[in-house]
Design a protein around this nucleic acid. Structure first.
Length: 678
DNA sequence: GGTAACTGGGTTTTT
DNA sequence: CCCAGTTACC
């Protein structure tokens, strides 16, 4: 346990009031860089000093990293030590509870947790029945992934389908009825196959908490509940918190509505503002002393901080003066990429390690050119956000095989695994699955029947894979199961991918990582809820002596800070993203996103805006301003910045005079003939 | 009938 | 670069 006096001594007046508040529910309005984490950790320590057992304190966060950070600071003992504070993401904690009582939720003990890509796959298999496929009468249907997004949005925000469609997906309005039918099917499919998606994890936890019998027991597990980033809760999460703490006496929420950036997944900062009406005796403590950024960075942040009738908060700088933010207007994107690299290197030479710098972008692709330039100059970097390791085809294959072993009723996984084999397409795969009646627990036994459904040329290869998976299912140790799955995949992967050796090496790492888990189920859940960013993530963190630049989406950078931050692509259409401009709420969120980006910087902030954008087509009216400086850099904001220009380099040609002479000779030959020219 | 190979159009953010 | 639709092949 942490020594209390030391923890409290390190706090300022407001932080200490927050950490030691008692007698009523508490909302800590914590601006960026105001020491929120330290305050929460201190509060956890103070609660323990008041006699609350650590394992009766629940800490809820939105990312695993945030949870790990805080738990490590609150209790430096080993992660698995007994009697620790209970903490994790909403989803991870929900999973832990549901897993412990799977039968009460009518789920198989080894139910599968599916990620959004799996949801899209299911939508894909179900949607043709509902006339949601192809381009009928010139109208293009929402893609499978879009259907899954709309579904999730309805559930997470507890909002009617018609409203979600009209507000967020107006071009799908004509398909509302079909979507409704599709969603009914989707839910039925998940229930029949023992599948639980991210939204279900929360729904099931909430249902249990609301249940007359189970509710009191689950609520009684915790005396204190601490919720981080409360502005990012969705309707279901807000309800979970309310059910955990009906009177709020042990509730602490931390948040800042100016940093709400997850509306697209159903979050709504209105829940933060509603806390005061939910709990009449809510105490609000503001943390406004900023210990992160130097004055000039903060002056810019305060200018762009959105004020949309939210909870007001002005940050006061506690660190000294420094450099003003520098806006470099670049000729085009290529120049911008060179300029970012030049500045990164200049900082590096001035003693700022690559690791102390970050390039933050609105969408993963905005860093494409910068990455090429970095690679050309040999600057090492890691990228967060965007495409994930688990989205690579071969990794999905492995996960499908593992899911079959853990939950043989998971025919989504079967569908993928069968099609991995040469000569097996969607139709044959479905036929095999039907023959096996995979919803039966003993379905590996039915393989002999199913094998006959396959043509000669692929039956042997598929049979080999399936028998190896059946063997894996009979093994006890997770390590043995992982090894069997790996060997089952060796043949099919080698046959399918031209670069099979490299891909198989990834799978070996994956199998190693899975082998360390208590069960295959846990390994899979971990993989779904907290996907590794790259294969090297599985092999532990990069060595500490490696120095690399961080490239990250702004979303993934939330809660982090760097001494030097580079923000490229500050043009309308990119920041704010033109995808977000269909609603006024979308534009407001983009501004909050920009605010989050700017407040990541400790010492120096570099802004870049290319004057010309390379883009395929201007399809929508609201893209007319594409290529203009972002509207968020108003004149008031620009007044807080220095400005520079960067032009593309011209290739240096040394011997100009001889070249000019040769041109003249060539011209001469045109009218005097080659002989005369000489 | 069913699969693979080819082609052209479109691309946010994440638990 | 991934997905959907089309065509060519078994």
């Amino acid at each position: 346990m942490t020594a209390l006096p030391g923890v409290l001594d390190a706090l300022n007046e407001d932080q200490r009031r927050a950490a030691t508040h008692q007698g009523s529910p508490l909302l800590i309005l914590a601006g960026a860089g105001t020491g929120k984490t330290g305050t929460l950790v201190a509060r956890a320590a103070w609660l323990q000093a008041q006699g609350i057992q650590p394992d009766r304190i629940l800490l809820l966060t939105f990312t695993r990293r945030a949870a790990d950070d805080m738990l490590a600071r609150a209790d430096p003992r080993d992660r698995n030590a007994p009697g620790r504070i209970v903490g994790g993401t909403f989803h991870a904690v929900a999973h832990r509870i549901i897993r412990a009582h799977a039968e009460a939720f009518a789920l198989p003990a080894e139910f599968s947790v599916i990620d959004p890509a799996d949801s899209a796959d299911i939508m894909d298999t179900l949607r043709d029945v509902h006339g949601l496929v192809g381009t009928s009468a010139g109208r293009r249907c929402p893609r499978a992934a879009t259907c899954a997004e709309i579904y999730s949005r309805c559930v997470a925000a507890s909002t009617q389908l018609a409203d979600v469609v009209s507000q967020g997906y107006p071009w799908c309005a004509q398909f509302t009825a079909q979507l409704a039918a599709l969603f009914t099917d989707f839910v039925g499919y998940k229930r029949r196959h023992g599948l639980v998606d991210f939204d279900d994890l929360l729904l099931l936890w909430r249902a249990a908490l609301a249940d007359a019998a189970a509710g009191p027991a689950l609520r009684g597990l915790f005396d204190a509940v601490l919720v981080d980033e409360y502005q990012d809760v969705n309707a279901v999460q807000a309800e979970i918190v309310r059910l955990l703490q009906p009177d709020g006496s042990g509730l602490t929420c931390v948040g800042d509505d100016a940093q709400a950036i997850y509306a697209f997944r159903g979050a709504d900062p209105a829940h933060l503002r509603a806390l005061a009406s939910t709990y009449g005796d809510l105490a609000i403590i503001r943390l406004s002393r900023n210990y992160r950024s130097r004055h000039p960075v903060l002056r810019l942040a305060n200018v762009i901080r959105p004020q949309f009738g939210g909870l007001e908060l002005a940050l006061r700088a506690e660190r000294g003066e420094g450099h003003r933010p520098l806006l470099t207007r670049c000729h085009d994107e290529a120049t911008q990429a060179r300029e970012v690299c030049r500045q990164v290197l200049a900082e590096h030479e001035a003693g700022v390690a690559f690791q102390q710098q970050a390039v933050l972008v609105r969408t993963a692709r905005h860093s494409d050119l910068v990455e090429i330039e970095l690679a050309a100059r040999g600057i090492p970097y890691v990228k967060y956000g965007g495409l994930r390791f688990t989205e690579a085809a071969h990794v999905k294959d492995f996960i499908a095989a593992a899911r079959i072993v853990a939950n043989p009723a998971d025919d989504l996984a079967w569908f993928r695994l069968l099609r991995l084999h040469e000569g097996v397409g969607p139709v044959l795969a479905r036929r095999v699955i039907e023959t096996m009646q995979v919803a039966q627990p003993q379905q590996f036994d039915r393989w002999a029947d199913a094998e006959r459904a396959l043509p000669q040329r692929c039956a042997a290869a598929v049979g080999l894979t399936v028998r190896q998976l059946a063997r894996a299912a009979q093994q006890e140790r997770t390590a043995d199961r992982a090894a069997s799955i790996l060997s089952a995949l060796h043949g099919p992967v080698a046959a399918r991918y031209p670069d099979a050796a490299a891909r198989f090496a990834d799978l070996e790492r994956l199998a190693d990582a899975a082998a360390d888990s208590p069960s295959l189920h846990d390994a899979l859940v971990q993989l779904a809820l907290d996907p590794p960013v790259s294969a090297s993530d599985l092999a532990g963190k990069p060595r500490l002596d490696d120095d690399y630049l961080v490239i990250s989406t702004v979303h993934s950078a939330k809660g982090l800070e760097w001494p030097v931050v580079h923000l490229p692509q500050l043009v309308d259409g990119a920041v704010p993203s033109d995808m977000a401009l269909t609603t006024p709420a979308g534009l407001e969120e983009e501004q909050r996103l920009f605010y989050v980006a700017v407040t990541r910087a400790r010492d120096r902030l570099y802004l870049y805006a290319p004057l010309r954008m390379h883009h395929h087509r201007l399809a929508r009216d609201d893209r007319h301003s594409y290529g203009q400086l972002t509207r968020f850099l108003t004149s008031a904001a620009l007044a807080q910045c220095d400005q520079a220009h960067a032009d593309p380099p011209r290739p240096a040609l040394t011997p100009i005079a001889p070249l000019a002479a040769s041109v003249d000779r060539e011209l001469q030959s045109l009218w005097s003939g080659p002989a005369a020219a000489r």
